[in-house]
Computed example of a mutant assay.
Amino acid sequence: MNGDHSDDNLLIARAFGRPGATASTMVGVTSEGGVWSVTDAEGTSDLEVAWPGGSISERPEIRREVVKLYRTACERLGVPAREEHAPAEGDAKGPHGGGAHGGAAHGSHAHHGADHEPEGEKQFSKVIRESSWSDHSDSEGATFMEDIMRGHGTREDYIDLVAQHYFMYVALEAAAARVLADPAYAAFHPAALVRLPALEEDLEHLIGADWRDRISPVPATEAYVARIDEVAAEGWAAGVIAHHYTRYLGDLSGGQMIAKRVAKQHELDRAGIAFYDFTELGSIPEFKAAYREALDALGPELDEAERERMLDEVRTAYHFNTAVFVDLGKRKREHASASA
């Protein structure tokens, strides 16, 4: 939502109680509804909107309910819905219409929409995004990360996250330099995308000159790094891109919102959040569009088995990220218990 459909967040906020909203970001989900951080003339505060179809229990259901909120918002505001989310013929409108529980139009993320585009003909970037949607939601929903995104995390929580990023990017950028040096992959990894110098700058500012001696990876980060190293050692370019896509496109999307939240909460300027500063990259939307074009060009070069293997690796990357957040939560609880 925050990366590819940011305008939808604003429509939902304006239609569900905040008509003067000027900015809206989705910051959380529960079984009962979605949570948006909304800015209007009165300031910034959270807006909770109940799921139209009632309580949910499975993460794939989140998308179905968000689509229904978007459609209802469009109806209330008199805005035409995008074709992919327009009601199918015979599908009742409104939050309690006939499509409320995932009928033919909404039962599958990969096959809904008016064009009924066959899977094999879809742009590869779209196939990747759709096939990993629920995995992405799992990652965002991890409690540790959700606390940071909603401004409830401590400064130490943020420092712990930056430290894990450091270990991840040591492996990821070594893998990218090793496998993506081929000019055919130049669009994926320009020099301005490199994050390690910024991470080192952030850690020195947040911890001190001895930061290298004071950080350690959680077990999930160690496993994540080992997997990236394994993929790179194999020389599997599509696998490296799977991890590359998962991390960098996230940094360029939801990561920008995290930076704003953390900067405001902990009074940080560029120092401390340099990791999220992509000024040298130029226009973020333009780069993301070029990145997806590169993915679309890559897809036809891979046979069906290789495409499926790459999609599986994208899901694996998301699962590693979720596991890192879970481990960070465990570490936080252990430290709190030890100091009690």
Rank of each mutant, 00 (worst) to 15 (best):
I273L: 04
K93R: 15
P190K: 03
Y245P: 03
S337W: 07
L77I: 10
A114I: 12
Y248F: 15
H5F: 15
A186G: 06
A110K: 10
E117G: 03
A13T: 09
M145T: 05
E58Q: 15
M1C: 08
A171L: 11
A81M: 10
A191V: 11
T22I: 11
P118R: 10
H189Q: 11
G329D: 08
A186N: 07
D160G: 14
Y276E: 03
A271S: 14
E230H: 12
S55M: 08
T154M: 03
A223D: 12
A50D: 08
V38C: 01
S108Q: 14
P19K: 09
E308P: 07
P300A: 06
V29G: 06
D138Y: 10
V79E: 03
G299Y: 01
H85D: 09
D251G: 08
E42D: 15
L298E: 06
A305S: 13
L328H: 05
A336I: 12
L10S: 03
I241K: 01
A81D: 03
Y185K: 08
A100Q: 14
E286V: 13
Q164V: 00
E308K: 13
R331Y: 04
T25W: 13
V49D: 02
A233R: 15
E140I: 01
R76C: 01
L203M: 09
A336Q: 14
S37R: 15
G103L: 07
T279H: 13
A142Y: 03
L252E: 06
I148W: 02
A177R: 14
W211K: 07
E48Q: 09
R155P: 14
A271E: 13
G250L: 02
K264D: 15
S31V: 08
M257N: 14
T72M: 01
R331M: 05
D157E: 09
R195W: 07
A289W: 07
P219M: 03
D7E: 09
G28P: 05
G20D: 15
E306M: 11
M1L: 11
A13Y: 08
T246Q: 00
G102V: 10
Y318L: 14
A238V: 01
S57F: 10
E204T: 02
I62E: 03
K330V: 15
D202E: 13
P60S: 00
D4H: 11
V35G: 00
D160P: 04
R59G: 00
G107L: 08
L172R: 05
T39K: 12
E84W: 06
H243I: 01
R59L: 15
